[in-house]
Design a protein around this nucleic acid. Sequence first.
DNA 1: AAGCTGACTATGG
DNA 2: GCCATAGCCAGCT
Length: 110
Amino acid sequence: MGDFFSKVYEVVKQIPPGRVTSYGAIAKYLGTAGSARMVGWAMNASHSHNRFVPAHRVVNRSGLLTGKNHFDAPNAMKELLENEGIKVKGDQIVNFKNHFWDPAKELGMD
DNA sequence: AAGCTGACTATGG
DNA sequence: GCCATAGCCAGCT
């Protein structure tokens, strides 16, 4: 299912700056709801992708920066988000719901 | 080859 | 809202 990875990258790359989404939302958009872990796994393999993948815009459903530990630096994810105007308290995105970007909704699936 | 792991989520108490 | 469990499935050992 290498296509799944590419699909994930395509969606993640379409996330607008200053917005974030969840693994589950992406999984659901791709029709693989329940396999949110695979989205996270795709992120883990994102370094293999030719283009840059804004994995920092993908967090868990609570808006928690669960993947920060997988970045080059533990604070890289937080800094990238704050650089886009997103407030981050510890590992938690402030006003997460306001920044949430649902691919299924925004990409014309409403 | 068989089992374990994990950047998750939904559900029940 | 928090804690415990269970489903999920591709990749790694």
